[in-house]
Computed example of a mutant assay.
Amino acid sequence: MKGKIKKYVALVLSVQQLLCGCSATELEDRCFPMMAVVDEKDGQIFFGYGFPKLSQKDNTDLEEARVNIAPVTGKTMESCVQTYDSGLEKLADCNHMKVLVFGENLMEDTGRYADVLSYLKQTGLFPRNIYVCVAEDPLALFETEEDLPQDLGSYLEQYLQNQESAGSGKLFKLGRLLDEKENHILQIMLPYLETEDHIIFWKTMYRVPDDRFLYKQEK
């Protein structure tokens, strides 16, 4: 009997050690996306992260941190995330993320858009308190980053907050979007971002009336 108890205790300890080893990732082995973009390109999902100009370890730049890789495409959001993560040399820790940007092409394909929301709801990949907006061209947003005083994700967060205070419209957070989309709330309005001469503007709102169509409404 004592022998069986010892074996059971040893098994439990082994499992605990295994679980701890899998879940614990040291800070230097993580990278910290500040934003994510999801769009549709050539019939596939288009996905990528935006990182800080400096890593959160030893103020190393992105090249040294080896996290600044190009966006990827795939049939599903899940396959894109897996492909992108496999290209990173560090674990993507999204807990500090600020903004999620949906591309206009994705928004016009309501089936794929619904699939992306379903994936985000099921996995909890991104924090529920990040802002959500729509961009005419998400890649054009990245082209403005060289002229910004901070990383694009942090800039967009501050810009959206300032514009909301100025009366440009109401911001939407991911958690609310997921909940209200699931409950079929018809009045979902998202900020619509455009770029001109490497400057970002929020002039209009996208309204999501139901799962069948989405249109841009001028204010």
Rank of each mutant, 00 (worst) to 15 (best):
F102P: 00
F102S: 00
F102M: 08
G103I: 07
E104C: 02
M107E: 06
E108M: 13
D109V: 02
D109Y: 08
T110K: 05
R112G: 00
R112N: 09
Y113K: 02
L117C: 10
S118R: 15
Y119D: 15
L120K: 03
L120T: 05
K121D: 05
K121W: 00
K121I: 00
K121M: 04
Q122C: 06
Q122R: 09
L125G: 01
L125C: 02
F126T: 06
P127M: 06
R128M: 12
N129D: 15
Y131L: 15
V132A: 06
V132D: 03
C133E: 08
C133P: 04
C133N: 04
V134T: 05
E136H: 13
D137N: 14
D137T: 14
D137G: 01
P138S: 10
L139I: 07
A140E: 08
A140P: 01
A140F: 05
L141V: 12
E143V: 14
E143G: 10
T144A: 11
T144P: 08
T144C: 15
T144F: 10
T144Y: 05
E145M: 14
E145T: 15
E146V: 12
D147H: 11
D147G: 01
L148G: 07
P149H: 11
P149L: 12
Q150T: 15
Q150W: 03
Q150G: 01
Q150R: 13
D151P: 09
L152R: 00
G153M: 03
S154D: 13
S154W: 07
Y155L: 10
L156A: 04
L156G: 01
L156Q: 04
Q158I: 05
Q158M: 07
Y159C: 01
Y159K: 05
Y159S: 03
L160T: 03
L160D: 01
L160E: 02
Q161K: 15
Q161E: 15
Q161A: 14
Q161D: 14
E164K: 03
S165P: 00
G169Q: 03
G169I: 01
G169C: 03
